[in-house]
Design a protein around this nucleic acid. Structure first.
Length: 777
DNA sequence: CTAGGGTTAG
């Protein structure tokens, strides 16, 4: 039976319903079909089989040729999502007219079949038909939907040339088109010239500015409303709130929400789910609780988005309990809410709990989506669970969930952390194939990953190929060069950055200064430090002072470094004092070393490194009694037994030195000297001290030590959990120590070299592709 | 044949 909503009482409708069964009858008369079809025009729901019956009858009776009927058929097929049927029906017509095309195009556009819409449009043109104002809005809507900027602009040009741009629907859909294409100025101009300005276009324009973070223009357009004689409605306000929330203008979002109420409008589900995340980001727990109360009172708790937003808000405000309570109380089984919960747990550092919730949901058969997988992958890679992140990524693909432009930058740090170059490359390939590789987040993460895997040239290649860059990209490249101690390249990037019009921030300067310090570019470093506030208006932060202290210290300007610490506008932290102490060790300055060490012993009494550095300084001056005193202190604190006097460390340093440069021919000489010195020291009852015996070596090799390469050659990553087996294959830059299952990540090439790497209490000896280890002390 | 607004992942 045909359902005829709203018109069931109509006499003719009853007649139609009772006569529809006739259609199959042989005696059907055309007048009855005509009546029937007239009525079908008014009906909104009709079953597919009934349409097919009518279709067959129309063909039999020849009424099919009447344009009026076949239009109805086309739209009915389209309304039942039988797009290919509708299309073949259109193609079966000898000469499809504009009305047939328009009907189908409008239906396609309505159901967001945008590609089909545009294909049909080009067919329309190929048939020699001339589009009118009935079809153009749908075409523009399709261009908006798939961001077909070029076609949209061509249609715009056509509509101007044909005078159709004066049609109010064409006008307003063009405004919307330019808003969505991020060409706000164009949209604004178009809006100003509109013959009939309407609320919809006006709201879209203001919301567009808000979504872009252009607060000034957003408010300007929004406040023009009175002069335009337009009346804002709930949707207009919601657009502003949502736009400000999406662009991170949280205060403005909350302000608009308040204003909305102050002007007598009532917020609906959309307003609330848009304002809650903004409240959360601002940490306005009080406002959040008020909105929560309002949500309960108005019965909005059945709205999925609002529940997710509430959980998110409590998560951001640091209320883990309240967050879980909302989740449990609503009893709503929604992915969004689950995702918000997982993200909230991760934000509180409850990584294991987040993973457990994820697994439980998975076991319960919940349909987890990209956001769920991405959150949990991000959670792992942000909390040092890199292998788990890679495993989850694999699980995601096994579950048939397609990663997107957010997933990849969450995964890449995990690849970089453990130098899983193969996995990183796979993720890179994926982004290329999916056409998302131009994304700035992905680009920055790729730069970082390749740099972490020692592939600094590849990182640079990614950087150079980016079609658009933001501050994060520039900082990623600067950070990559700083990590590899390449100050000259960092400086080049820094200047390129400014020439491109991007303003450096304090992160940029940290990388720049750090690389100068590592490369011994003292004057350049000081120059950039001074220009920071003078030319760029950036106040130096404590990490910048730490860089400068290290820069001066490495250059031997220890007094200057110390006076820098004394006059800096911060209470110096362990990084600052640590930089001074390391420099003191490098230059054997005992008095300042004692000052720095004294401060460090207060700030971090359980860090063995500080004690070792100080005892190294004492040892280099032959103050063996002081060495013993430091050693006793360490023993009392339960730290190491034998600071700064390890033969292993001596060998370690020699090998590091040799691996980092080209001085192999000197090996024999150095070892000779080491042996002689160590014999003497042993005779005197002491183990050889690294700074003592390496003093000469360091004189010769200072350059290389200052370059920082030797220290960066290899990094011990962590213990491999052998009980579970690892999905991770040993890559070119990654080795596993056969004895203790420690991962060792090599940052630059190491083939054919013998290398010692130091862990906190073990050393790992790497030779001929094999790794063995022993106790450090 | 008819427009504009929503949450959770970086």
């Amino acid at each position: 039976m045909i359902a005829i909503p709203g018109s069931a009482t109509h006499g003719k409708a009853r007649h139609a319903v009772s006569s529809i069964n006739w259609i199959n009858g042989d005696r059907a008369q055309s007048s009855i079909y005509r009546d029937t079809l007239h009525l079908l025009h008014r009906t909104t729901t009709i079953s597919l089989s009934q349409v097919q019956q009518i279709h067959a009858q129309l063909l039999r009776t020849g009424l099919y040729d009447l344009p009026h009927y076949r239009t109805k058929l086309l739209s009915t097929y389209a309304n039942h999502h039988r797009f290919s049927d509708a299309k073949s029906l259109l193609h079966s017509l000898l000469k499809p007219d504009l009305l047939s095309f328009t009907t189908l195009i409008n239906a396609f556009s309505k159901f967001k079949e945008f590609k089909n819409t545009l294909n049909l449009f080009s067919e329309l043109l190929a048939n020699g038909l001339y589009p009118d104002a009935h079809v153009l809005p749908s075409i523009i809507k399709a261009c908006t939907g798939i961001l077909a900027v070029k076609i949209g602009k061509q249609v715009h040009g056509f509509s101007v040339a044909s005078g159709l741009s004066l049609d109010p629907f064409v006008e307003s859909s063009l405004v919307h088109f330019y808003v969505k294409c991020d060409e706000l100025d164009g949209a604004h101009k178009l809006f100003k010239n509109m013959v009939e300005k309407d609320v919809v276009s006006w709201s879209a324009l203001a919301a567009g500015y808000a979504r872009k973070g252009d607060v000034l223009n957003a408010k300007k357009v929004f406040n023009e409303v009175k002069g335009l004689g337009l009346k804002p409605n709930t949707v207009s306000w919601n657009g502003m709130i949502a736009g400000f929330n999406q662009s991170g203008c949280f205060l403005d979002a909350v302000f608009m929400f308040q204003q909305m109420h102050a002007r007598g409008f009532t917020s609906d589900g959309t307003s609330i789910s848009s304002v809650l995340p903004a409240i959360g980001d601002l940490g306005y727990l009080n406002s959040g609780t008020q909105v929560h109360g309002y949500v309960i009172k108005t019965g909005f708790l059945i709205d999925k988005c609002i529940v997710s937003a509430l959980i998110d808000m409590y998560g951001k405000c640091g209320c883990a309990l309240e967050m879980s309570k909302v989740f449990e109380d609503t009893g709503l089984v929604d992915v969004g809410a689950c995702n918000a919960l997982i993200a909230g747990l991760a934000r509180h550092g409850l990584v294991d709990k987040a993973l457990r919730v994820f697994k439980e949901l998975q076991d319960q058969g919940m349909e987890l989506n990209v956001v769920s997988w991405t959150s949990v992958i991000a959670c792992c890679s942000q909390h040092g669970k890199d292998i788990e992140a890679l495993e989850l990524f694999r699980g995601m693909q096994a579950a048939g969930v397609k990663p997107n432009a957010v997933t990849i930058p969450c995964l890449l740090p995990a690849c970089g952390n453990i130098a899983a170059l193969t996995h990183g490359k796979a993720a890179h390939c994926f982004s290329l194939k999916s056409g998302i590789s131009d994304d700035v987040y992905i680009g920055s993460a790729l730069i970082d990953m390749y740099a972490n895997c020692g592939k600094i040239q590849v990182a640079r290649c990614c950087f150079d190929r980016m079609p658009a860059r933001n501050l994060v990209c520039w900082n990623a490249m600067l950070g990559a060069y700083a990590m590899h101690g390449k100050a000259n390249d960092a400086i080049e990037i820094f200047h390129l950055m400014q020439r491109s019009g991007e303003k450096p921030d304090s992160v940029s300067f940290t990388s720049l200064l750090s690389s100068c310090s590592q490369s011994g570019l003292t004057e350049e470093g000081q120059h950039y430090f001074e220009s920071m506030s003078r030319d760029h208006g950036i106040e130096a932060r404590i990490e910048h002072y730490a860089c400068i202290v290290s820069l001066l210290g490495r250059a031997g300007k220890l007094e200057q470094a110390y006076s820098m610490i004394k006059k800096m506008p911060f209470v110096p932290d362990a990084c600052v004092w640590g930089a001074l102490l390391s420099s003191c060790r490098l230059h054997h300055n005992m008095s300042l070393g004692e000052v720095a060490a004294g401060k460090l012993f207060e700030l971090e009494p359980m860090n063995p490194g500080n004690y070792i550095l100080l005892s190294n300084i004492y040892a280099s001056k032959g103050k063996w009694k002081e060495v013993d005193k430091v050693r006793d202190t360490m023993r009392d604190k339960g730290l190491r037994k034998n600071p700064g006097c390890s033969w292993i460390e001596v060998k370690n340093r020699v090998h590091m030195l040799l691996a980092g440069d080209k001085s192999l021919p000197q090996m024999d000489k150095i070892l000779d000297k080491l042996n002689r010195l160590s014999m003497e020291m042993k005779k005197a009852g002491y183990l050889p001290n690294i700074d003592n015996v390496l003093q000469d070596v360091e004189e010769q090799e200072k350059e290389h030590i200052l370059c920082g390469h030797s220290e960066k050659l290899a990094v011990v990553f962590g213990i491999l959990n052998t009980s579970q087996g690892s999905p991770l294959r040993v890559t070119k830059n990654l080795r596993i120590c056969g004895d203790c299952h420690v991962f060792i990540k090599f940052i630059s090439g190491f083939e054919g070299r013998e290398i010692f790497v130091r862990d906190t209490n073990r050393y790992h000896h790497f030779k001929d592709g094999e790794c063995s280890c022993g106790d450090y002390w």
